[in-house]
Design a protein around this nucleic acid. Structure first.
Lengths: 354, 354
DNA sequence: ACTGTTGTCGAAACCGGTTTCGGAATAGAT
DNA sequence: ATCTATTCCGAAACCGGTTTCGACAACAGT
């Protein structure tokens, strides 16, 4: 015996292809394929026989080999915009967990990319679409006029919004009715005898920012409070901007005794501004916010906020998108959920007039 | 004209296939393919002509159609273990950004899945491998004896560790030498006259936990301090566990004047424990930690910590894995980096003896 | 017994690329 | 001018599945 070990050192455990399975069963690969895909022209006896053999031999089709004929790769696309407002970072892991879990349950996968700008986002959507790396897309953080929607709609690519949009034609979505929560917050504060309630909006352009703003106005109206535009601060998505926004409100001749924030990250800044002015949160100044980021429990006092179950949202979105990719009409794929109020120490009865 | 609008309302803009391109050029698809893939048997003139035509017509190959012959899908796999220690959540977005950006640069994509247990992780690796959803994998948070490594190694699937391992055969990796940072932290504190320096290790099993523990010991040795095993707390990966660990150290008959934490999330708990005992961080008790999570700046005083550039790490890992998938030997794909010290208010000179 | 369905499967085309092989044209050597 | 090398491209096989089409058998109806 000569040392002719030219071959691969470790013989890889050969993949089982559909022809192997077919040969083993004495059938043709076409028949096996139809049996596995539940075509009606295969007898129950054969279908069962094929299934069992496939199970035994551990046959699983190569997804890209299927895709070449079916045109479907069984993959959900997600383009995340990082960089910008990092207020949303903490959600990412939970969101992915939800998406991925629901996708896995249907034997789909998740293809994610990150972009630093709107333009790059569209580039990535284009690339993923034309190279067919994904069958459809999840669009988080919907904007009022969202270029992603136009882009995908004109190309006939399936998508589901995490959010809502005005021009709803052809759109499927899942969203949390944050406007209802903000409305609730205002009414809650009004019930605690607050007469002047400030509001820190989210960044312009995002549809949820407008909705929450509407919710604030609805809360005022239902509480019978007058609407003073001075009580609406400039938009704030982060801690620093939140502090600046709160400063404007608190330095008013007739400042608010409570502030409602569109996002937790801005509320962090409200704490800063209040501390800087010697105001005690929860007594001198009430704060209620929205999102439910982890940091809210770190604050002193912990922040009262409406918590969104981001993982559940991701899971539902994945399910909707898969249905969409399978041909369900978008009109049937629209759902709404609610955030849960976490009542903590940052709000209380309005202080008596000095 | 009759209303025979039975066809699709919007005629989708037909994809350009390689045969279309070939027909346009008066060549065969085989030749076009070879030209696009830089085969040596194509003249420069033709290659250029094909490239320009492809550009003009916007031809881009279907990735799964290529894959059927090449066996490569140009996708990096990432299975994240959520659920467990949520101490790592904040990194996820940054990590993904790094991975995705570097992958995009090479025209690869990222396939991510999340698992809730080791077993589920292996299941997902199996599924992604056999269905060929990814060409290789990034393995974050390497364990001392990591089942993922065994799994992929025996199957001949490429992978890159974010971390290091003892049984290095066939392993490529990128890692931050956190042990050096911990060692530095101990020496820094020793230089500030701290004689008793406590340590809160990371969770058992993770290779970095062992490395950081080693770094602590090395720091003591180089500072000429004795090693008192009482000063080593139980492992802690989160805030509550960190508080419990710190409690043990601070309630010692002869407590430490400084504590080094393996992870920031545990340091959060050290603050709690100190506050509870009326100790002022930075004067009564010095704390230095590791990771650089965003919350560290929220604390009072802000936490001195070694910050890891998670995005850069992700980018480097993606580059290494792509090289590995292209056939580079793993021994050539091993790199190390360093964390950057963020000196803030949580450490100071050791208090004088009472 | 003869035709008409229906059920079941084999054979072959097909999807959109890549790769192998061989042949024609051109260049270089004698 | 002839012969060999080399360059460059066409033709066809190939990858691993899915889908279409038609053949054949069994069964029902008259």
């Amino acid at each position: 015996m000569q040392a002719t070990e030219t071959a691969e050192p470790s013989a890889l455990p050969e993949r089982v292809r559909i022809v192997d399975l077919a040969a083993q069963l004495g059938l043709t690969k076409g028949t096996v394929s139809r049996a596995l895909n539940d075509h009606p022209d295969i007898s129950d006896r054969t279908r069962l026989r094929v299934r069992k053999a496939a199970e035994k031999l551990g046959y699983r089709p190569l997804s890209h080999a299927q895709a070449i004929r079916t045109g479907r790769v069984r993959s959900l696309g997600l383009v995340l915009q990082v960089n910008e407002h990092d207020a949303h970072r903490p959600f990412v892991a939970e969101f992915l967990a939800g998406l991925s879990q629901a996708a896995s349950a249907e034997d789909w996968t998740l293809t994610v990319a990150t972009a630093g700008s709107d333009e790059q986002t569209l580039d990535l959507l284009d690339r993923l679409t034309v190279e067919k790396k994904a069958d459809g897309f999840i669009l988080p953080r919907t904007k009022l006029h969202d270029p992603r929607i136009d882009f995908l709609r004109t190309r006939g690519v399936p998508f589901v919004l995490y959010g809502r949009t005005e021009d709803a034609g052809g759109c499927a979505w899942f969203d949390i009715e944050s406007e209802k929560s903000i409305e609730d917050a205002v009414m809650l504060l009004a019930g605690l005898d607050h007469k002047r309630i400030g509001f820190v909006p989210g960044a312009d352009g995002y549809s949820y920012a407008k909705l929450r703003h509407d919710g604030y106005l609805a809360g005022l109206a239902r509480s019978g409070l007058s609407h003073d535009t001075q009580l609406i601060a400039p938009p704030a998505m982060g801690r620093d901007a939140g502090a600046a926004a709160a400063a404007i409100l608190l330095d008013l001749p007739h400042p608010p005794s409570a502030i409602v924030c569109s996002v937790d990250a801005a509320a962090l800044g409200v704490y800063d501004a209040a501390r800087h002015r010697g105001l005690k949160i929860g007594t001198d100044l009430s704060v209620i916010s929205y999102d439910g980021i982890p940091e809210t429990t770190l604050l002193d006092p912990p922040l009262s906020t409406y918590r969104v179950d981001t993982r559940a949202a991701g899971a539902r979105l994945a399910e909707l998108l898969i249905k969409r990719c399978r041909g369900a009409p978008p009109e049937d794929l629209r759902e709404l959920g609610r955030a849960a109020f976490r009542s903590r120490g940052s709000h209380g009865v309005a202080p008596a007039k000095a």
